[in-house]
Design a protein around this nucleic acid. Structure first.
Length: 346
DNA sequence: AAACTTGACAACCGCATCGAT
DNA sequence: GATCGATGCGGTTGTCAAGTT
C-alpha cells in the first residue's frame, strides 16, 4: 500500500552529517555532478539515503551557498516576496542569490514570522483604504497563539496579506502572472515600449478555479487548465545566477505597485473585454523577448534583459486567447480594479 | 551551578509533480 | 493515457547552543 520509501532506512546513518561524510559527498559530486540521488549514496560509499544527500548538498555543501547573516536588504526582500508569494520558499530563495529555501524558511519561522505582522499592520493602517473587505475583518482579529513551527501562516491570513494563491506545484512549471513588463505599443512602425498589462483568467472558462472559501484564485490551475504554457520560474524570474538584489527588488516593486493579488482576489470577473487586438499585439512582440533556450520563438536577439517574460508567450497567447481576458491599459476601455496602482482606472 | 526555556538551524518526511517508458 | 522512478517542495521535527530563572 502506498509508495515505498525512497530508500530503506536499514543501516543508514541519520542525523547530523560528519565532516567525513561531507567530504565524500562533495568529492563525489565534484567528480560526477549532481543528480541520480538515489544511487549516489551507494556509489559514493555513503550510508545515507539519496534524499538526505541531495538535501545536504543543496542546503549546505553547494559552493555557491552564501553564509552569514541575512542582511537588512535581504530581509526586506523576503518580507515583500512572502507577501506576494506566500510560503513559496523555493521561489523566494530564487530571488536571493546564495540563499536556500530551507534557510529562508527557517529565518522566516524564527524571525520574520513574528515581526512581520506588526510591520504589515502598521503599513496597512497607514495606507489607503483600498483593500478588499474580506481581509479587513480578519485583520481585526486578536493575535492568536501560533505554533512555533509555523508562525508565518496565520499572521498572513489575519493580516489579509495579498498572497498569490498557488498550488504547491513544482517550481519549474509554476505559472506566473506578470505585470508592467515592457511590451510594445502598436504603432505604425510596429513596436514601442509602454507599461505592461495583466493576463487574467476569463470568467467563462476558469470560474471553477476560484476558491470561494479563501477568496483566492488558483493561478496554476488556471494556467494549466487553460492549456497555457507555464513559465519556468528558474529561467524566467527566479534565476539566482542572473539576478541581484536590486533587480529583484525592482521585480517586487513592479508586482506590488499593481497589487497583483488584489486584482486576482477581487473583481476581475467583471472585466469585460476579450481583446484580440491586444493578443495580436503580443504576438507581434514575441520575437522581441527572447530566451536562451527558447525553441518556440524562432528569431533570436541579444536582448536578455527581458527574458523574464514571454519566450513561451507565443504559444501561450496564440493558443489560449479564447479562454483569456487580456487587460491592457492602452487598449481596453473600461477597466476597474481594486489595485492601488490605478492604471486600470476608468 | 543546575534546570529550564528559547532560538536557530539542520535534517527528515510525506506528497506533488515531472519525465521517461 | 497509465505507470513508475526520480526529483523538488513545504511542513515539521530534532538537536544543540545560548540565555534565563
Amino acid at each position: 500500500m502506498g509508495r515505498s520509501p525512497c530508500c530503506s532506512n536499514e543501516g543508514l546513518n541519520r542525523g547530523a552529517w560528519t565532516v567525513h561524510e561531507d567530504k565524500i559527498l562533495s568529492e563525489y559530486i565534484k567528480n560526477h555532478g549532481e543528480g541520480r540521488w538515489r544511487n549516489l549514496p551507494q556509489k559514493a560509499g555513503l550510508k545515507r539515503c539519496g534524499k538526505s544527500c541531495r538535501l545536504r548538498w543543496l542546503n549546505y555543501l553547494r559552493p555557491d551557498i552564501k553564509r552569514g547573516n541575512i542582511s537588512p536588504d535581504e530581509e526586506e526582500l523576503i518580507i515583500r516576496l512572502h507577501k506576494l508569494l506566500g510560503n513559496r520558499w523555493s521561489l523566494i530563495a530564487g530571488r536571493l542569490p546564495g540563499r536556500t529555501d530551507n534557510e529562508i524558511k527557517n529565518y522566516w519561522n524564527t524571525n520574520l514570522g513574528k515581526k512581520v505582522p506588526l510591520v504589515q499592520h502598521l503599513h496597512q493602517t497607514t495606507s489607503s483604504n483600498t483593500t478588499a473587505t474580506t481581509s479587513s475583518n480578519q485583520s481585526k482579529k486578536p493575535k492568536t497563539n501560533h505554533s512555533s513551527s509555523s508562525p508565518g501562516k496565520a499572521p498572513l491570513a489575519e493580516m489579509g496579506a495579498h498572497v498569490v494563491r498557488t498550488k504547491a506545484i513544482k517550481c519549474s512549471t509554476t505559472a506566473g502572472v506578470f505585470l508592467n513588463y515592457p511590451k510594445p505599443n502598436r504603432t505604425d512602425e510596429g513596436v514601442a515600449d509602454h507599461a505592461g498589462g495583466v493576463v487574467v483568467p476569463s470568467k467563462d472558462h476558469d470560474e471553477d478555479k476560484y476558491d470561494v472559501a479563501s477568496n483566492c484564485y488558483d493561478i496554476n490551475s488556471v494556467v494549466q487548465g487553460s492549456g497555457l504554457s507555464a513559465f519556468d520560474d528558474h529561467e524566467y524570474y527566479v534565476n539566482a545566477q542572473d539576478t541581484n538584489l536590486s533587480q529583484n527588488k525592482y521585480f517586487v516593486d513592479q508586482m506590488e505597485e499593481l497589487c497583483l493579488s488584489d486584482l486576482l482576489n477581487s473583481d476581475y470577473f467583471d472585466f469585460p473585454v476579450h481583446d484580440h487586438n491586444f493578443v495580436d499585439t503580443y504576438n507581434y512582440n514575441v520575437s522581441t523577448y527572447n530566451h536562451p533556450k527558447d525553441e518556440i520563438v524562432g528569431d533570436h536577439h541579444d536582448n536578455h534583459d527581458h527574458d523574464l517574460l514571454f519566450s513561451q508567450g507565443y504559444d501561450w497567447i496564440s493558443t489560449s486567447c479564447s479562454s483569456m481576458t487580456v487587460i491592457d491599459p492602452n487598449v481596453g476601455p473600461d477597466f476597474h480594479s481594486n489595485a492601488e496602482g490605478d492604471w486600470l482606472a476608468d
